[in-house]
Each structure stands twice: as structure tokens, then as C-alpha cells.
Nucleic acid binder design. Structure first.
Lengths: 279, 279
DNA sequence: TTGCTCCTCACGTCACGTGAGGTGGC
DNA sequence: TTGCTCCTCACGTCACGTGAGGTGGC
């Protein structure tokens, strides 16, 4: 299965022969890689001495450069080998088009992963600078999210997980990598049952739903996923004290969870509800 | 080195236990992957029967989701294992920032590869639709290139390769993956010595040099890298016949070379020189 | 002749996938 | 009891990298 070698061996002359190390330096292809390509018959040196020393011709610089181009384009070594048997401009154009599509898919995967990282970094940073001591009023930016369907609660101690699994499995376009938060239809619902959100939502930059920008009453608490430590009561008391009027849903998100903390009793949750501004 | 399991085992109850296949379906993590994670101690099931059957708790859905997030972010399995020992928001933010940079590097690599593919696809397509029969006048688009330093020719039969290697090794910012062409300072130089270009250039979309857009006299020939088959004379004759005036350098590029053809005697070269337009 | 380059061969890598052959659980 | 799920163990993958131990070439 010698592939890309014989084509150009005829012009090898002794004085243009290059030993393997020098050839490696010229082409930026490692010595072990060159030996490997020789072993699998993909690219064999123009000459070998009786002692087995490999010598490459200057012409082979072009050949190896081209093999690396194909590999960089996403062809496997065996594909490159096969290509040697029937190369034609038409088939090559077709194959390259296919590789273009593959690269595009790979690109969007990487962009998605970057987005995931960014979201988590933002949450962690927000957690690091949070004022955990007391409930406060903060301006918050808009947050694109994907909201799941309304949770149906059975009187079942595992309903939280069942709803959570249903959210992950059944919400269209939900990406499992993004963090998930819980949402209560209003402050009253949060106070009534602070561990059972009406909906789950995923913090996804591509989400079509949105937690709107605005001024929010924000509170924090530490503890495991179900725990609230009376945060809902503290927030309610603060709202009354400050004579604020709040509107819309309560958003619960974990700024620090198992991603950034080992001890689950220390998970940092943020609850926020929007202030209705007097006009 | 059990890592992300013990934290959340206490809440496992018999009736919420999930066998491996169902857990795999819920989490989109393959059965063999789950067994592998168990084997290396990264993620062990909440319970095992006497017979060795693995049962996972619903809570572990969150745990495995989070492990996958870290893996998607570019952490290796051993890194994820290590992370279990000291997770803190601060260190996590730092590590994630590092991964962000890595992803960015990976992205630019992929974009570069896409660009390489595009350039080759364009050349191949141009070759497929070329009018090889005769020299003609064509409008051509601008082509960003990186031009190398002037070749110094020794009276040496390998000087072509020596110059070529020098171009590849010494031209700043040259990317070995892009195709390389040859350039003659003017039509007279091309006619005088059609196998020894004054400079090499790389067809690189990021190049700061440019083959300008315009109307060109274009000719084609087939053959190996040094061959011209008198193309320079045919072009010159055409220019005289048509009473054209040409200006600027002659650009030689291979539209079909070993990338898309097996037989080196069939390589398709294009030569073009710009027409000075009468005002 | 010295010392540097080169050689082969065997094994390791990384995160699983794929059987073969056998047993467990409702 | 049947048949389905699950188990372990061993080996394969892909494109090389890394020694160990030995020889070749100027």
C-alpha cells in the first residue's frame, strides 16, 4: 500500500538526499511520525542504505506537506492511503466538501463548549462577589434561558428528581451542559413551597426565553439543593420593610454547586425577584 | 480515588435506584462509559447488588451531568478526578479561564483548516472549469498571498528545491498548509526562464500581499512542476496577436497537483499576467 | 577512532467500544 | 422457568511518543 512515494522517486539524486532528522526539521514532521508513515507504507523514503538509514529526496518535502494538508483537513491516515489509489479533481472536491461540513460541525461544538464555560465562569464570579449577608436590591442584566414545561407534582418524595429528569429529557433544544435553575410563578408561590419550583429553566445563551434585565430583590443562601433556610421569608420581610412591590417570577440559580465546591452543604443559591418600579 | 460519589450517596433509597441501562438512557452516557468511570473510580454507582449489578440514584444524574460538563470543557478524566480533591470557586474560575484560552486556540486551528480546505476547493474547481485549449483573457478576483523573499539562484540543479525550502522555512508567518505558487517579476522574466520564479508565494487568505483583481491573460498547461511546454511562448504570441499590453508580475499556480491527481504528468498549471487597460 | 545519528522492537497512551462467555433478577 | 439484563475480562482503536539496547556512517 505504498501511496505517495513512487510517483516522485525517479528524480532522487544522491547529493540531494536528506537524512531523517534534517528532513524532520525542514518539514516540521517528527522523526517518529516519519518512521510510522514508512511502517504503514504511507510515505516511504526515497532511499535506504544497507544499514537501514532512511534518506528523503527534496521533492518529498512537497509530498509530505501535501499529506499533512489532507490530515489537517480531517482525513485519517487510512483515508489518505486510499486516496492514493484514485485521486481525481472531481472526487477530491466532493470529499473536501464533506470535510468542510465536518469542520463546521466541529466548530459549532467548540463554540457551544465555550459558551458553557462562559456561563459557568459568570455564575462562579457572581458568587465570589455576592453580598451573602443580607437581602438587597441589585440591577441585573438580561439572562437568556430555556424554560421547561410546568412541573406536575405528585405527592412523592422523588418528584423533584422526576420533574428534573423530565425537564432534561423532554424540553426541546435543551442542552444538558448548561446549568439549570428553578422558577416560581410569583413570590407567593415561592413562599408557599420554596423547594418545588413551578418550572425548571436552563441558562442557555441560545435560549429564546429571557429573564429580563431590571432591578431585583436578591437573596443568597448556602445549602444543598432542596434547602432554603428561610430565605423566602427573609426576602418577603425585606420587601415589606422597604415597602417594595415585586412582580413576575422568582428565579433560583446555584452560583456555586458541585462544579466549584466539594461540600454540598455549602452550595450557594441565589434567589431573585423583580421590583416593580414606581413611575 | 473515588471522586464525585460519596458526597451524595446518603440520600439513596431503594425505590429511586436506576439500573445502568436506564441511567444511560436518561443521561446520554453510554453503558460502557459508565462502567469505565466506575473502574477508574471516577464515578461509582450508589449501590451494587451481590451479583455486581450497578444501581444509580436519581441524584447521580446531576453528578454525571456535571462530570460531562467538565470533560466537554476540555478537562481530562484524571484532571476531573484531581478536581474532586480541592474544588473551590477561585481555583475553578482560574482553571476555566485556562480552558477558555485552549478552546480559543482550538477554534482558530479549525478555522485555519477550513480556510485551507476552501482555498484548495477553489483551485480544484477553477481547474475543472478552465479553458485549457487556448490562451484567453479573463477577469480574475483579488487573491491574498504571502510573498517570499527574492530567490537567489545558484547554477545548481537543485536550486528550485533549495529556494522552495528556504521559502517555507524563512518566510515570516507562512503557513505550510496553503498552496504555494511561483511569481516572475514580469512577462520578460517568465519568457527568459519559465522554470525559475523570482519569488514563491503562498495563497493564504490572511496574507497581507495581494494578487490584484483585474483582467488577465490566462494560460494553462499540464505537466510536472518544472514543465512549461512552451506556455510562456504561447502567451507571448497571444499578447502580440491581440495587441495587448501587459503589466506587473506573472503568477503561476497549480490548480491540480498531487492533492487531486495521481499522475504527476497531468498536473494543471495556470499562468496569468495582468492586462494594462486602455483608458 | 570517537561520538553522534540512526536503527528496530516493544510497550504506553487516552477514553472508551466490542465482543466472548457467563451469571443474575424479576 | 424463560428471556432479558447485567456482569467480567481481554483485546482493539488511532496516530503516534518513549525508551531500551544495539548498530551505522562521516
Amino acid at each position: 500500500m505504498a501511496c505517495y512515494t513512487k510517483d516522485s522517486q525517479n528524480d532522487a539524486k544522491p547529493d540531494e538526499l536528506i537524512p531523517i532528522r534534517a528532513f524532520s526539521d525542514i518539514t516540521n514532521v517528527s522523526v517518529s511520525t516519519l518512521r510510522y508513515y514508512d511502517e504503514i507504507g504511507l510515505f516511504t523514503p526515497a532511499m535506504r542504505t544497507r544499514g537501514g538509514y532512511r534518506y528523503y529526496s527534496a521533492m518529498q518535502i512537497v509530498t509530505i506537506k501535501f499529506i499533512r494538508v489532507l490530515l489537517d483537513c480531517g482525513f485519517s491516515l487510512s483515508e489518505v492511503c486510499e486516496l492514493s489509489h484514485d485521486r481525481s479533481p472531481e472526487s477530491m472536491a466532493r470529499l473536501m466538501h464533506g470535510k468542510t461540513l465536518e469542520l463546521d460541525r466541529e466548530m459549532s461544538l467548540i463554540m457551544e463548549r465555550r459558551a458553557v464555560l462562559d456561563v459557568f465562569q459568570c455564575l462562579i464570579c457572581e458568587g465570589l462577589t455576592a453580598n451573602e449577608e443580607r437581602v438587597s436590591v441589585e440591577k441585573m442584566q438580561a439572562l437568556p434561558i430555556i424554560t421547561g414545561t410546568k412541573n406536575t407534582f405528585f405527592s412523592d418524595e422523588f418528584m423533584f428528581y422526576k420533574s428534573f429528569v423530565r425537564f432534561l429529557k423532554e424540553t426541546p433544544n435543551v442542552n444538558h451542559s448548561f446549568p439549570v435553575g428553578g422558577l416560581f410563578r410569583d413570590m407567593a408561590a415561592f413562599e408557599a413551597s420554596p423547594s418545588t419550583p413551578d418550572n425548571f429553566f436552563s441558562i442557555d445563551p441560545a435560549g429564546k426565553d429571557e429573564k429580563p434585565a431590571g432591578t431585583y430583590v436578591v437573596g443568597y443562601t448556602r445549602g444543598y439543593y432542596g434547602d432554603t433556610n428561610g430565605l423566602e421569608k427573609r426576602m418577603s420581610a425585606f420587601i415589606d420593610e422597604q415597602r417594595l412591590e415585586v412582580t413576575g417570577p422568582v428565579y433560583n440559580i446555584f452560583l456555586h454547586d458541585e462544579i466549584s465546591l466539594k461540600d454540598p452543604r455549602n452550595f450557594l443559591k441565589q434567589s431573585s425577584v423583580r421590583v416593580k418600579l414606581e413611575t
